[in-house]
Design a protein around this nucleic acid. Structure first.
Lengths: 301, 301
DNA sequence: CCAAGTTACGAGTCACGTAAGGATT
DNA sequence: AATCCTTACGTGACTCGTAACTTGG
């Protein structure tokens, strides 16, 4: 009786917009519907699945809603990928659009683009700076051809940015992590630090700069986020750390040549900063000169 | 202009049905539409994506269609998973429904069910035998609570049955592979065989029994499939091998105690037969007595 | 009492079915 | 000639928008 209609994407899009905006009205504007329509779409989903997905006033996901939203996000991402893969079948783009996370081996990228310019001055490259999640969406939707993404992970452990197999990802580089501290911090003289020794110490997190979910997944005792910097600018973050507002986990090269901030190598747990190359899984998409050059310069197999 | 409407699931379902049936008419019957409706749905998809997805007469996927169908399959599987996860939120099933592939460590399963019967005679278990792909769908749709699936893979390499993270999978057991040969086969006296040494030798493949795509992915020279057995019965397969119709790759225990068929350990490439436990990624679904018992008896960590 | 979501109802659209048309074997 | 897909067209269902209603802060 309840299988008269099945789940449709329109309703899932509505659900996601509602949860993103935390508002039916906002979702309606975003999607170009009236608020009433959104209300009905969400209601239809709830009826179809037989349970509440969204709490109203305030608008928050229920447990079921959160779970469904997670699946729905991936479903829509996959369809974006499908779309852009189909769009590129047979078309080799001559100018290459690149997205890069701020800390995703800018040295590597610069070297690669330099070499490219030298070998073929006619390749046009446009470069955009994005955080990792946006970079994934940009590749998926075809807005860029390749993305350089970074994050913290165990050695030889991939970044878990997308479902395995959805996009093609190649490990390019791993660099050691340091705990960035103000030079005047009491621990700044140590040769090596473990995260446990920094329990209860204040941290500055910068989710747009470093994805440290891999750290949190390892359940460090009493991880104390005292300041959250939502910007994407490394020097600002270093200012904050230098001013003694807290420590930050960064790839080692970030602190080189800085006198206010020192980087102490991280002992335990074993973690590295990892850079990966993301493209669509089509020969055309992954065979552009930038991706080739990057892969050739990868320091990981 | 073309973004008046977006891709909808109805159209994807139609596409998949058409490709499955290799017929618009068949798809229509399967989905309860008229054939005209199916034609229009596929046409709408093709218009939306701006390219042909299906060749007609005979009905076959184009390159783009094949790619889209692959994505669509995963999308629908994920939505099945979402549905059944939501359905189970809070409900702990008291009787457990199990699907098992024929060769997925029946010893392990039997031992587990025996122990379960001994420890708690009131747990009701229903067991169904399925091939791996059906088992995945059964878990995803909630038709069963757990599935035991098997396949061939490199040592410590997971079976790639579903997207990582879609379903929870636990490695349970790995057993060596043997090349099953008729006892009268010229190579039957060897102590060890590599696949290369069997180049050009006839093979009996049994996709419902052993998923050997991992073998094919390793591009064995001149893999010659002389007979394809689509059934799921091991003793039938052994009859075929014993009658000299070809060799087969099987877990070692399949040939024990058989006088007509000998199993020669496989040297190169390094491959094993692997058994995994599949459940939904919810605490409720993976915390049933069968799954617990199986995990406790796993010979892999 | 106001902001924000729901419900009722009417209108327009869109998708389905019927039936005729075409292509391929 | 038969089978199977496409296209044209009419009708019906469905979903959207308007507007009145309701609820919660």
């Amino acid at each position: 009786m309840s299988d008269t209609d099945a789940v449709e994407l329109r309703d899932l899009r509505a659900l996601l917009a509602v949860l993103r905006c935390e508002s039916f009205t906002g979702a309606a504007e975003e999607l170009g519907y009236t608020q009433s329509a959104i209300s009905q779409q969400v209601a239809a989903l709830e009826a179809e699945l037989g349970q509440r997905l969204v709490e109203r006033r305030p608008v928050r996901p229920t447990a079921a809603g959160r779970r469904l939203a997670d699946h729905a996000t991936r479903v829509l991402l996959r369809l974006d990928v499908a779309r852009s893969e189909l769009g590129r079948l047979g078309h080799g783009p001559s100018d290459v659009r690149v997205a890069a996370c701020p800390l995703a081996s800018p040295q590597l990228l610069a070297a690669c683009l330099g070499a490219l310019r030298a070998s073929d001055p006619y390749v046009r490259v446009t470069l955009r700076s994005l955080d990792a999640a946006s970079a994934v969406r940009a590749v998926a939707s075809g807005a860029v051809d390749v993305a350089l993404v970074d994050g913290i992970a165990g050695p030889n452990e991939p970044l878990h940015l997308v479902d395995a197999g959805l996009l093609a990802s190649t490990a390019l580089a791993e660099t050691p992590l340091v705990v960035a501290l103000s030079a005047e911090h009491p621990l700044a003289c140590h040769a090596r630090l473990s995260l446990d020794s920094l329990a209860d110490a204040p941290w500055v997190s910068a989710p747009a700069l470093v994805d440290q979910r891999a750290v949190e997944r390892r359940r460090i005792a009493a991880w104390h986020e005292s300041l959250r910097y939502e910007g994407g600018d490394l020097s600002t973050l270093l200012e904050l750390v230098g001013a003694g507002l807290g420590a930050a986990l960064l790839p080692a090269w970030c602190c080189r040549g800085d006198r206010v901030v020192v980087g102490i190598p991280l002992g335990e747990p074993r973690l590295v900063h990892r850079t990966e190359l993301l493209t669509l899984r089509t020969a055309e998409a992954s065979d552009n000169p930038v991706a080739r050059e990057l892969r050739a310069r990868a320091t990981l197999s």
